[in-house]
C-alpha cells in the first residue's frame, strides 16, 4: 500500500515527520481520515486528537486547533499546540 508522508509541526518544533499508512484528524467541519492518494484539500482544525497509524503501531497526539494541508502524497499538519498523548 502506498505510504503517506505526514508531518506534524508545532510552532516550537517538529513533532513528527515520516511515512505512515493513515492519519485521523479533527477538522473544523468534522473528523476526517487521510490515506495516500487523498484528494488535495485544506482545512482548519479544532482541538482534538490526531491518530497516526503506521503498520501495527499507533501514535496519538493532542492538538489545540491548527491547520491541515493535504495533497495526494503528503499531509502537513500545523498545530497551535501539540503534544504526544498516551493511549
Amino acid at each position: 500500500m502506498a505510504k503517506l508522508h505526514f508531518s506534524l509541526v508545532a510552532p516550537e518544533r517538529e513533532l513528527f515527520a515520516g511515512e505512515v499508512d493513515s492519519v485521523d484528524a479533527p477538522g473544523a467541519e468534522g473528523d476526517f481520515g487521510v490515506m495516500a492518494g487523498h484528494e488535495p484539500f485544506m482545512t482548519t482544525l479544532r482541538a482534538g486528537v490526531v491518530t497516526v497509524k503506521s503498520g501495527s503501531s499507533v501514535t496519538v497526539y493532542e492538538i489545540q486547533g491548527g491547520f491541515a494541508d493535504v495533497t495526494q502524497t503528503s499531509f502537513t499538519l500545523l498545530a497551535e499546540h501539540a503534544k504526544a498523548a498516551t493511549v
Binding site: G27, A28, E29, E39, P40, F41, M42, T43, T44, F67, T71, Q72
Partner: peptide
C-alpha cells in the same frame, strides 16, 4: 503542484483564521 485544492470551510474563511 498542479493540484486543485478543495477547501473546508472556503478559502476566505481559512485565510481569516
Amino acid at each position: 503542484k498542479g493540484g486543485v485544492y478543495s477547501y473546508e470551510p472556503d478559502e476566505a474563511a481559512i485565510l481569516e483564521t
